[in-house]
Simulated assay, not measured.
Amino acid sequence: MEAPLSFIHHLGVFASDFEVSEAFYTAALGPLGITIGYRADGVAEYWDPERDTPSLSLERAEEAAAVTRGVHIAFAAGSRDAVDRFHAAASAAGGSSRHAPRPWKEYRAYCAFVSDPDGNNIEAVHKEIS
């Protein structure tokens, strides 16, 4: 049996305010090369333009109890500069910084963490082997 490219095909996040969250994710993920590949009313699907999986599906929550909260999602970054740009863009688009970009020696990575508009922990991580 052949192993898949990634064991995650897609994730779904349900937003309390779709338009605010769409603006946040579009700004935050752009520096990582992740764009909207599909959009419909109340749905935006983000992926790498070279392949559509794994992907992040952002959807309008139909009720308050359905809002995604407390999730930690880490996105791969190609460089430290991409992590820095992610943090700046996410913060400017309504996110709040949890951890500014810096090396995390215990993970052999350079990372930044930002809360999305619903409080989810969104990370950009650039793995570095030392």
Rank of each mutant, 00 (worst) to 15 (best):
A109N: 01
A92Y: 03
G37F: 03
D17V: 04
A89H: 01
G95I: 06
M1V: 11
G95C: 07
L58S: 03
L5C: 09
G78N: 15
V71G: 05
D118A: 07
R80S: 11
P117F: 11
T53Y: 07
D41V: 09
T68K: 00
A3P: 15
A66H: 08
F14E: 11
S96K: 15
D116F: 09
R98H: 10
I129N: 09
G37D: 07
P103D: 14
R102T: 15
V125L: 13
V13R: 00
F18T: 00
G12Y: 06
E63L: 05
T35D: 09
A27Q: 09
A124G: 02
H72P: 04
Y38D: 06
T53L: 12
P117T: 13
R69Y: 05
H9Y: 10
G94K: 08
N120L: 07
S6D: 10
G119C: 08
S115Y: 15
K105M: 13
A112R: 01
V13Q: 02
P117C: 08
E128K: 10
L11K: 02
G70A: 09
D48P: 05
H9F: 07
A109Y: 00
V71D: 01
R98G: 15
F18C: 06
R108L: 09
R80M: 15
R85A: 14
R85Y: 05
R39K: 15
E2S: 12
N121V: 12
H9K: 13
D41G: 11
W104M: 14
I122N: 00
M1Q: 03
W47D: 08
R102P: 00
G42C: 12
R98T: 14
S21H: 02
T35I: 12
I129Y: 07
G33R: 01
L29N: 04
S115E: 15
N121G: 14
C111L: 04
P103W: 04
A23S: 11
A77T: 01
R69W: 03
S97D: 01
T35S: 12
I8P: 00
V43G: 02
A61L: 11
A66M: 10
I73H: 09
A44N: 05
K127L: 14
H99G: 05
N121M: 15
A15L: 09
Y107W: 11
A109L: 02
S130G: 13
P4D: 01
F86E: 03
A66Y: 10
E128A: 11
R108P: 01
S91Q: 12
A124H: 02
